[in-house]
Amino acid sequence: MRPAFRQALKYAALTLFAIPWVIVPVWLVVVNSFKPAGEAAELGLGLPRTWAVAENYGIVLDRGAYLTGLLNSLKVSVPIVAAVVLLGAAAAWAFGRSRSRWLQAAYFVMGLSILLPPSIIPTVYLLRALSLDGGSLGYVLTMTGCRVGIVVFLATGFVRAFPPDLEHAAAIDGASRPQVFVRILLPLLRPVLFVGGVILVISVWNDFFFALFLLQGSANATLPLSLFQFASGTLQSLNWNLVFAHVLLTTLPLVAVYVAAQKRVLAGLTEGALKG
């Protein structure tokens, strides 16, 4: 076979695969979120016979508590991601440079924290003992503690791969340690922190399991939690139009960020920062 022909064949196959894998699922959500309840119940892929865009999205914004959910998601996701990246980078610097046996032991435990599943029920117990149960702060602290290991693990290898000469030179020039961290370490670690950040944003924004156990009441509910409550509330006769409208609105913020940073996300994840 000629290479050009093979190439064309490959892309034809990929397109054929993309139709059921990506296009149909997305289309199903979008088009059915525009239909009235009865029509959406057929779960067809055709265009709406009657359009009910304003009604559906109005109901989701109102009854689905979308805006509260959006604010709550932002309120917890931003601190978690910022804390994990910054504290993770700082710890990785220490783990990468210090030869203290205690710190190396701590580094090993952090590695285990990536692999082992978090113990959710004792966490609820612990947060109750600390009077942090049910609210955002307890959730943020727990998520940070359970996720910081990934960034520490990725970044420590990165720190070790670099000789400390640059940091020494800066210190001789009179830079304080925080200055060295901000001016040398953070720029050095940028690629790996970016990759860690991307994975973190996806997993934190979409977290349902922790939220289900740790966040109580609709006042604290994040988007996945409000989607679940909304869908469960109408489960007997699952109103597909409304569920899909909520799904679309819940996914949209992340897709918007992704579209804006797409090139860097794909390049970052494929340039092998995950290796090792």
Binding site: G88, A94, R97, S100, M110, P122, L126, G145, R177
Partner: peptide, 28 residues
Amino acid sequence: TRARAAWLPWALPAIVLVAVFFVAPFLL
């Protein structure tokens, strides 16, 4: 680089968070 104790403050916040919110629940 020699003063080992000097590295501790940089790792401490992460260590405390992992200890309290991952290791302690694990042991409990």
